[in-house]
Design a protein around this nucleic acid. Structure first.
Lengths: 336, 336
DNA sequence: TTTGCTAATGAATACGTTTTCATAAATTAA
DNA sequence: TTAATTTATGAAAACGTATTCATTAGCAAA
């Protein structure tokens, strides 16, 4: 017995193909009696529509694609779970494509296997591809780069504001001498975080000291070394607080401070960024800044669907982060 | 400008549609000169084949679907990464569908959006669905249930053997009085692990003591309580070792032993199952049994592809596990 | 020369569906 | 009653591709 098609249903029900199609797709032109009859016959025959035929004819797949280089780690699975749930809610399916091959991404998108794409691909799609997508009016939302045109937008974390808020928080604790431990200066986020830090200092009219910006390269060990040499070089100007470019860097910093006899947070406050898993288990538990990953997923899906429905043009959504106050920060004590 | 199709390429190249199709799909009937000419024109026009047309006509998608209820946690992302890589190698794409809706699974599979399916769905697909798939000769591999017919197979972990081996290892350390901390007795894995434990005892002719099987329910706290009450009830028969149904249970067990003044592993050995992330960071680091997740992914994909190619019939592949010896187990000391 | 064969190409069909448009029947308006 | 409108249905086209089969041209063998 071969695969049952809409034709077989039509024959069995004694109606035309179009009638079956209308019944199945709930197009409101049929008499209730024929409609229910057709549906009953379809069920009896265990009819399942061929999606390729459907999609070819209608030009729609009711599928959104998430294109990513990896799904490993909490960031990705939190993201994917939230997107998946949001797709469900909006009547779409979510399809995860894991690939580093630009070609694969393009042929799936331009080949219309999905109605729209969420793209996280670490900057491997070049201008040429973008303009090809633009020409075809492909609907897409980028998670790791800023892009905005008629049919394409972005949802990114605003590291600048996050850093500004983090610095503001440290200032609110009474800290004035705040050292910023920079990450990798070629990375967008790293630069944004440094700028946010500087902006907060300016806003609260605290002096900006070039010596108070050191390089930690987002790593524990290099930060450890950087902090130690900082303390050696400037034994006179011990800071009130350190703002590290990420959590690993914060940990390296705290280790270094310990070896110099400083207690965190009583003597010096330290905070990081990202709220990695270790953050809450570390001693002291890290005060840090957490990205709202689920929110990113939800916004991306919603934006994409609105692009598809042409209810919206491409926009750059910037997400604010969340301050996570734990044990590594403390009000400044002026006891001595 | 509208979407470019194979027709446009044919017109631009001054050849027929079939010639373009043959050129693009590398069918070896064309003269080299026309072939390269067609490919050049296609490239110039930025032609990208419509996958829905392709798939409808050919009946193939070159896509495998992974159907799962979740992607959260190390098990899933290790699995997905390994499957994805293996798909690449075999010339397939992998598509991850996250859903709890049996309907969605069936319509995607029976609607031929994929050439084959890897299914992890916690037993929600019933016999009716299975037989529908069987009738259509759908190619599928299950990861969480045993199933075997002409076009469908399984790749599962052999918990029985794993537990047997774990017990054997404890015996090899000189332990004779081994307590098994059972999980949830309605779960397949839980039962298998208990049976493996019993089989090892029998094989090495150690006495089987009903009191030495206690309930921990796969949880830290309930195990903690269970072990404490065990020690209270049987102060006379202190065991040499505990084999816990999973790592969380092992941790609960060690905590309880600590409060009773026993040192792990010097006084008593404890081991778990699963090798969760915490296992290696715990004090003492847990001796445990690790499933070879990547292997499961690789085998599943390979089996599925061979089913599709009709080079193989459905089989149940059982994977052996890997003993991870860390600090929570130790040779039995008969000092006193 | 004629015949037969091979190599290269194109015309036409089919895949399974949605959708447009025409038609027939039923209802309402005149 | 007839004309006009609405309602329900079906015939046929279209989506973009792969594939079968026929056709043509070129060439070697007889």
């Amino acid at each position: 017995m071969t695969k049952i098609t809409i034709k077989d249903v039509a024959r069995a029900a004694g109606v035309s193909i179009s009638t079956v199609s209308n019944a199945l797709n709930d197009v409101d032109v049929l008499s209730p009696v024929t409609k229910s009859h057709v549906l009953k016959v379809a069920k009896q025959l265990n009819y399942v529509p061929n999606l390729n035929g459907k999609q070819l004819r209608s030009g729609k797949t009711k599928m959104l694609g998430f294109f990513t280089t990896s799904v490993s780690g909490p960031y990705f699975y939190k993201l994917v779970e939230s997107m998946s749930r949001e797709c469900d809610r909006l009547g779409y399916g979510l399809n995860v494509f894991i690939t580093k091959d630009r070609q694969v991404i393009m042929s799936n998108i331009l080949g219309r296997r999905v109605d729209g794409a969420i793209i996280y691909e670490e900057l491997r799609i070049d201008e040429e591809d973008i303009s090809a997508m633009q020409q075809e009016k492909i609907k897409a939302v980028f998670l790791d780069r800023v892009l905005q045109n008629e049919t394409m937008g972005s949802v990114i974390f605003d590291s600048y504001v996050a850093s500004y808020e983090a610095t503001k928080y440290l200032i609110s604790l009474g800290h004035k001498k705040i050292v910023y431990i920079s990450g990798v200066d070629t990375m967008f986020d790293s630069v944004e975080r440094k700028e946010g830090y500087l902006a907060a200092l300016r806003h609260y009219q605290l002096p900006i000291n070039e010596d108070y910006i050191i390089q930690g390269y987002f790593e524990e060990e290099s930060t450890y070394n950087a902090v130690k040499s900082f303390l050696h070089l400037h034994p006179d100007k011990v800071p009130d607080a350190f703002l590290a470019g990420n959590d690993l860097s914060a940990i390296g910093c705290i280790q270094a401070l310990k070896t110099h006899g400083y207690e965190v947070p009583l003597d010096i406050s330290v905070m990081g960024f990202d709220d990695i898993d270790i953050a809450q288990y570390y001693t002291p538990p890290l005060t840090t800044v957490r990205n709202q990953i689920a929110k990113q997923g939800i916004q991306a899906i919603n934006h994409l669907v609105r692009l598809i429905q042409k209810k919206e043009q491409g926009t750059v959504h910037k997400l604010t982060s969340e301050l996570v106050v734990r044990g590594s920060s403390h009000v400044k004590i002026y006891s001595k």
